[in-house]
Computed example of a mutant assay.
Amino acid sequence: MKSIQLAVFSLALISSGVMAEASPQSVVSSYMAAWNAHSASQAARYLANDVVYYDAATGSPVKGKEKAEKEVIGAFIRAVPDLQWKMTSQPVYNQDTIAFQWQFSGKNSGEWAGAPATNNDIKFEGVSFIKVVDGKIAWQGDYYDSKKLEAELQKAKP
């Protein structure tokens, strides 16, 4: 009888572990915290190996965890080492996908897309759609006002 109870208890523990998989909200919150800690490698831990990152401003998706870490997350962190990426709306969910408005701010004190640092403060808003599969980000699409960002990068200092 004790062995049956132990087996049932063990099965319950295993099942609860499977059910306790990270929610899209918790994955995205941890991912954003890693960005705000200015750690590309830590943020990349939340990406699936075959992640697709789509930035509407560039129009070309970046495919794969290593490329996303280097060409997206790392590029932003190098360009704006003090960056802050904040969720500014309640997220909207559709099973495995989360959408939310955000604000990105900081000082452009590093090279950005081949251009030298402007040392300008930047602040722009956008929306992200992030699909989470098996506790990892499988797809991220960012949509924002790239003209406002460009203007802030080029504004003259008083």
Rank of each mutant, 00 (worst) to 15 (best):
M1L: 13
L6G: 00
A7Q: 05
A7R: 06
V8P: 05
F9Y: 00
S10W: 03
L11G: 02
A12F: 12
A12I: 12
S16Y: 13
V18Y: 13
A22D: 10
A22F: 07
Q25N: 12
V27L: 10
S29Y: 07
W35Q: 04
N36P: 08
S41A: 15
L47A: 01
N49Y: 11
Y54C: 10
D55A: 13
D55C: 10
D55F: 03
A57D: 06
T58D: 08
G64E: 02
I77G: 02
Q84K: 15
W85R: 00
K86T: 14
T88G: 05
Q90D: 15
V92E: 14
I98P: 02
I98S: 01
A99G: 13
F100L: 08
F100D: 06
F100R: 02
W102R: 02
Q103P: 04
S105H: 11
G106R: 11
K107I: 15
N108G: 12
A113M: 15
A115R: 14
A117M: 08
N119H: 12
N119E: 10
D121K: 10
I122L: 10
K123I: 08
E125V: 09
I130H: 01
K131E: 15
K131T: 15
D134Q: 14
A138Y: 01
A138G: 07
Y143R: 02
K147R: 06
K147V: 06
K148C: 05
L149T: 06
E150Q: 13
Q154D: 08
